[in-house]
Amino acid sequence: MKVHVNMDICLLHGQCVIAAPEIFSFDDSGDLHWVEVIDDSQVADAEAASDACPEQAIILG
């Protein structure tokens, strides 16, 4: 599965980092990073992150 964050609408709530720390993270300067391709074992975490994002910025596909 592919993970993408639409940075035009992401407001850096960080809910994704909490829901799925293995996929989403902040670097030292506060920018959001994510794993772009995940395996099946991480899909549930990615979906939880997507549901937790108040801006619906996370696109899975």
């Binding site: 850096l12 709530h13 960080g14 980092v17 909490i18 902040f26 670097d27 030292d28 506060g30």
Partner: peptide, 10 residues
């Protein structure tokens, strides 16, 4: 506060 800082306190 930057999200990473809040995450630490969370």
């Amino acid at each position: 506060a930057p999200p990473a800082l809040i995450a630490k306190h969370r």
